[in-house]
């Protein structure tokens, strides 16, 4: 993969440390500005390279906060986050973050194709235009998520499920090693869910690391290697793939 000549936030780039896990958090405390209680209160988590981890827990338990902190969108108050052995922000081009749909201005005049192309920007940096290769990668990502027919449509014309697929297509186009997906299954139809699970399976086969915040407990077992359960900003159990955790009754999980 070609390194950008003028990367954004240059000077912070670093190569991954050999043998380091994709993600290692040590006792991290993360809060939103102005909030009294931090949203994450001492989370220790290790996600080895090549695992597909589900992040579950009730609303407000800190799933999104954890993903945002790893993506560098929220500063940690204390503790440390290591992504491939480096500080957050040193491995921009290795980390893709799929935001919740509401974070984006869908009324903006931009086509689906171009939205997905923004996934390539991290490899381009300042002053460089997308190459044919970038455009091929974009076309392939769009095809994988079944959006080929809508590629030239304005993003505002997409349905909720199609928007979600477009965002995942962008994350694919980024060709990152660690993908952070924030509620990709939220409020979408069943066929879109299948498409997304399909794309996730493909990523797992490629050896990518995935951390997925989800509410959909019915499909945890097949789709993930392990699951971490967050409650009120803390990990309830060490994440593992033990059947007893994955088979938790729905009721128990909702009420904690």
């Amino acid at each position: 993969m070609s390194e950008p000549r003028f990367p954004y936030s240059s000077g912070r780039h670093a190569d991954p440390v050999k043998g380091a896990p994709s993600l290692l958090t040590e006792d991290i405390v993360v809060g939103y500005p102005g909030a009294l209680v931090p949203a994450l209160r001492g989370v220790n988590l290790e996600v080895p390279s090549g695992t597909c981890m589900a992040l579950v827990g009730p609303n407000g338990s800190g799933k999104s906060t954890l993903l945002k902190a790893v993506a560098g969108l929220l500063p940690v108050v204390s503790g440390s986050i290591r992504v491939y052995g480096n500080c957050v922000g040193a491995c921009h081009h290795r980390v893709a973050y799929l935001p919740q749909r509401g974070e984006i201005d869908w009324a903006f005049p931009i086509s689906v194709e171009r939205l997905v192309l923004t996934g390539r920007y991290v490899h381009l940096g300042w002053l460089r235009l997308p190459t044919t290769r970038d455009k091929d990668i974009v076309a392939a990502s769009i095809r994988r998520l079944g959006l080929s027919g809508l590629a030239t449509q304005k993003i505002g014309n997409l349905s909720g499920g199609q928007q979600q697929r477009a965002l995942l297509a962008r994350a694919l186009a980024q060709q990152a090693d660690l993908l952070l997906l924030d509620e990709p299954f939220n409020a979408i139809d069943a066929s879109t869910q299948d498409t997304i699970y399909d794309a996730m399976r493909n990523l797992r086969q490629q050896g990518k690391t995935l951390i997925v915040a989800t509410h959909d407990l019915s499909r945890l077992t097949g789709a993930f290697d392990m699951a971490a359960y967050l409650k009120a900003g803390k990990l309830v159990s060490q994440p593992d793939a033990s059947p007893c955790f994955l088979n938790l009754e729905k009721e128990q999980v909702w009420t904690g």
Partner: peptide
Amino acid sequence: VLFHKELELTAFDPTHGEVIGLH
């Protein structure tokens, strides 16, 4: 012209900009 792609991206999706180090 030179900064079109950055101006465009940060206008509709500032979050993605921050994630890739573009403030």
